[in-house]
Amino acid sequence: MKISFRCNGKPMQLEISPETRALDVLRDTLGLTGVKEGCGKGECGACTVLVDGLPVSSCLLPAAKLEGTEVLTIEGLRKPDGSLHPLQQAFLDEGAVQCGFCTPGMIMSAKALLDETPRPQVEDIEEALSGNICRCTGYGKIVQAVMRAAEKSEEGRHDG
């Protein structure tokens, strides 16, 4: 079957087989390998992408469900000038990354949060990241990084 959607701002038209998962289309067909497969069962959040702005586990999503949607993956976060998104920068600055496998999913969940709640409380961040598992860090730095990104974005807004 044919599906059309926008991925990281670009229009896509693909021929897919109806059994395919969105995860496989993004990784294998489109080469967006920042989308990670951890559990394949909706439990770890490594495969999180935003579909029409909402965080979704792409491992549970039939690719056919992408039809007509707007998809954002970690690859689409960078600004056109190549500089990093405030969340990406904050994860680096706070040292919120160890092996990095969970990081794209964490950042996409955090992005969904900040789009809706630009000044989150710690509890909001914990709730927004509750579907993302990290096996390396203790989550503390990840939460700090999201806080920092929120503060930076806010400053950016005030500066201009």
Partner: peptide, 9 residues
């Protein structure tokens, strides 16, 4: 129910 990712869909 589940996580934010599950509750979206």
């Amino acid at each position: 129910v589940g996580s934010p990712q599950i509750r979206s869909v």
